[in-house]
Write a protein that binds this DNA or RNA. Structure first.
Lengths: 192, 192
DNA sequence: CAATATAGTGAACTACGATTCCGTTTGTCA
DNA sequence: TGACAAACGGAATCGTAGTTCACTATATTG
């Protein structure tokens, strides 16, 4: 019963990609209050074309967020598969967190979804988030076994802390250094 | 050269207070996208009256934020004055952080200023923030002396972590528990 | 190379919400 | 109590930005 979609026309596919790329840039520069018209202009496309691909502004942002979480989930899984001994699990998770934070630092659309309400946008990436949480939990299980994390650490703790770090990225206050925030957050996970 | 303002007329003072109170409620319920009309209605006052007291929506939010930080700074100073031995400084700071977080949890206007850009709003409370930072630094100095904090902890670290905790409050995601976040943040400050 | 479904365009439309403005009301003070 | 400055009210204004739509352009396919 799955409706097999016919493939997009070549120009349509090209434009869709351009729009997403431009949207990432524009939202990255101006935050969520950036305008669709700007996205269209940057993509070299009319507004109508943007709306053909994404019925609302929210849908466009959702897709950006979904892709980003797809990336996060994939990276986490790959890193997990490379973990040798339980002893290395925590260090690997640490690496994933830093890598993903670094990516998010350049992407205001995701930050917006992570920090400023935006329920709908957040929900759209449910699957990807769950996958990321699951992988995180697997990391934690192994790290716990090796005694490298506080035994009560949950995957949602990590998610929550990461959201906190992301909120620091968006403040624009130079005395707030998100890398420092991340260091402290990771420190909080270590067993006493 | 200081312009001595004549005191507000009695009804004006009353209305000003009502408006601030209503604004706190309305922003608390609907976030920053709450409307001035709602604030006016709740205060039992016309929109014009709101605008007489606060020239823009931003000015109204700024005043809410300023008052809140005034409260935070005062509380911190009082608590500081009550600290007996250096040994107790960290526990006292812990208490202040929890108390202030609890207050912020019911005040979306402040959360908005702390997490979502809003530079102007944030700047308006500069004095109060600086006072809070100074007191925090005094707490830290004593706690450091007693060996109860990581020696590299800065007052801005605390501010940044608190902003992170506040961002958790606003997500509306039930699996995110800001008290847990705060616990972890405080944990991060302890010396290894 | 038609025929045609798909896709693109951007001016115009809309909704929404901040802000203004001026006629009316009220507190204050002599 | 009368005069008047201060304050109030709320309908009307204005700007902004998301969204639509009628028309045109073009990729695909036989």
């Amino acid at each position: 019963m799955i409706e097999t979609e016919r493939p997009l026309r070549a120009d349509a596919r090209r434009n869709r990609d351009r729009i997403l790329e431009s949207a990432r840039e524009v939202f990255g520069e101006n935050g969520a209050e950036a305008q669709i018209d700007d996205v269209a202009r940057r993509a070299g496309v009319g507004v109508g074309t943007v709306y053909r691909h994404f019925p609302t502004k929210e849908a466009l942002m959702s897709e950006l967020v979904r892709r980003q979480f797809r990336l996060f989930a994939d990276r986490a899984r790959e890193a997990y598969e490379d973990v040798g001994a339980d002893d290395d699990a925590f260090a690997a998770l640490d690496g994933v967190m830093r890598h993903n934070a670094e990516t998010t630092a350049g992407d205001a659309a995701v930050r917006y979804a992570m920090t400023s309400g935006g329920h709908h946008i957040w929900d759209q990436a449910r699957v990807e988030q769950q996958e990321l949480l699951n992988t995180t939990e697997m990391f934690l299980a192994r790290a716990r076994r090796a005694g490298k994390v506080r035994p009560d650490t949950q995957a949602t703790d990590i998610a929550m802390l990461m959201c906190g770090v992301c909120s620091t990225m968006g403040t624009g206050r130079p005395e707030f250094d998100w890398r420092r925030h991340l260091d402290l957050a990771i420190e909080a996970l270590r067993p006493r």
